[in-house]
Structures are given as structure tokens and as C-alpha cells.
Computed example of a mutant assay.
Amino acid sequence: MSEGVLSDYIIDWREFFCGWGAAIINVTLTYPINKLIFRQILHGTQIIPAFLQLKNEGFYYLYRGILPPMCQKTLSMSLMFGIYEEVRRPLVQLGFNPYTAKTIGALTSGTTEAILMPFERVQTILADSKHHIEYKNTIHVFKELKKYGIREYYRGLVPILLRNGPSNVGFFIIREEFQSRFPKYENHLLRTSCEFICGAMIGVVLSTVFYPLNVLKIHMQTKVGGKFDNPFKVLVEIYKERGGKIRYLYYGVQMNYTRAFISWGIMNTAYEHIKNFVY
């Protein structure tokens, strides 16, 4: 890195903060929908049986497991936006092609987010009804997993890596292309609506494309202890268990892209509003 670039390079905490704040708003509003999707993925059921299952369990269990995603998502979104910009910016200053810089920045941020995988692992266990009696809360799960070694916290790492990096590339590039081509409205309501639609549509596309990886990740992470199965082998087993049809791997995808529409719409809108405030 040249002396001029080094002298101009200062870590900007504001991007980290914007991502963190947007995640808090996002997780709080969308957790029940996310849990409904989880049950569909895990049990391969339609939306009505999954909804009735959650209803019968009651409100207490509805928000059971929210602490891990709250911790994971706030840190994850902070890293996603912060590291992306901290990697992209110096690469552009060094003369890299803007799209190359964006791709490297997005892949780096997505891979770095995988450090927070233990939170996602604990959330999966707490959301699975078969573990309701065995595990009491977030802290209890963390303590119990410790018995199996550090690797147990990272069970299901491969599908997460395959999901995070490429989906971040898609998000940042599509988002910036959308913003550069869409009219800049002065009206606050119109501008907010555009921000929501931008995030929502990107979320729908990316969440649908990478949905089978989430199915694979959940099935790998509901297992506690024992050997670590080959991801491809697990995916084939799920495929066979669900009747040997690709479309059965997409159980819950309707609720998933509905959740993604709301979640990423909220996240993008919240991020832009917080960004306008802190800048």
C-alpha cells in the first residue's frame, strides 16, 4: 500500500455501527417468522402444521433462543458492512477495478462473519423442539457443547461459508447498482420506500438461491456430538428422505422469502436511516 493511501486510511467505525443498529431492529421484528421457517425446514412440513406447533408451545417458547441471533446478527451485520467497506476502500485507492474491490470486500466480510457461527449453532439447538427439555437456555447450551470440544461449536461450517461470501457479493453489488440507477427522491416517504424495496427484493432473490444451504446447515447443526458428517452426504440423505425430489428441499421457501422480503427491507431501510444520522 502506497504512503499516500496509508496516510489517508483511517478505520471508519460508523459503518460498523450502522450495521449493528440495523440488525437490532431487524432481529426483534422478524424472529417469530424466522422460527416458523426453521420448523418447516427441520421437519419438512407445510406452514399450517408448523404454525400450529408454535402456537401450541405458547408465547414463552416463541422467543426462546432469540439471544444467540441477537448477539450473532448484530455482530455479523456490523462486520458485514464495516469490513466490506474497510477492504473495498483501500483496494479502490490502490487502483483495483471497482467490481473486483467490491467482490473481495464482500467475500472477506462474509468469511469473517463465520467466526460468529457458535451463536447460529446455539440458536438452531434452542429452536428445535426435541431439545426443549435437554437444554434450558443459551448459556446452558454453550456449556454443554464445550464437553465435545471447540469443533462442536462450528458444526455445519461448510454450508455457512458457501452461503455467506457469495451472498454478500450479490447483496453489495446489486444494492449499489440499484442505488446508482434509481431516482434520488427528496420526499422522505418515497426515499424510505425505495430503500425498503431495494433491500427486500435483493433479500428475496438471494435467500431463495441459497435456501438449500440453509436446509443443509440446519440439519447438520441439530445434531449434537458424534462424528462430523460430509455435507454432500447429508444433503443426499435429506434429498432421499424427502422423496427424491428437488422441490421438497424447498419446504418453507415461501415463508423464507417472505421473511427475507421483510427482514432485508427493514435492515436496508434501518441501515440507511442510521447512516444518515451518524454521518
Rank of each mutant, 00 (worst) to 15 (best):
E134N: 09
E241S: 13
E241Q: 14
P183C: 05
A114I: 14
H43Q: 12
Y99N: 09
N168E: 07
G65A: 09
N56G: 15
P231L: 09
Y257G: 00
T112W: 11
Y279E: 15
L75Y: 10
R14W: 13
I274R: 07
G252Q: 11
G110I: 03
H140C: 07
T222C: 08
A260Q: 11
G265T: 07
T112H: 05
R39Y: 07
I174E: 03
L79S: 09
Y154M: 03
G105L: 05
I139E: 05
G105Y: 07
Y239A: 06
Q254V: 15
L161K: 04
P69N: 05
V169Q: 02
L62S: 06
T100V: 14
F119W: 09
I150G: 03
G156C: 05
Y135M: 09
I48K: 12
Y31F: 15
E177S: 05
F81C: 04
N97M: 06
Q123G: 06
I37W: 04
M1R: 04
C71M: 14
L116I: 07
T124F: 07
N56I: 03
L116V: 05
Y250C: 08
I246N: 06
I125Y: 06
T192A: 15
Y279A: 08
R181A: 09
K245T: 10
V122E: 03
I37C: 08
T222G: 01
H131N: 15
V169R: 01
S167W: 06
T138P: 00
K227A: 11
S180Q: 09
P98N: 10
L54N: 11
D128A: 13
L36I: 03
E85W: 06
I66V: 14
A127Q: 13
E85C: 04
E120Y: 11
Y60D: 11
M117V: 09
I83R: 00
V234K: 15
I25H: 01
T30P: 00
Q254P: 00
I139K: 11
E152H: 02
L94W: 10
I202A: 02
K130P: 02
S76R: 08
G199C: 04
E241Y: 06
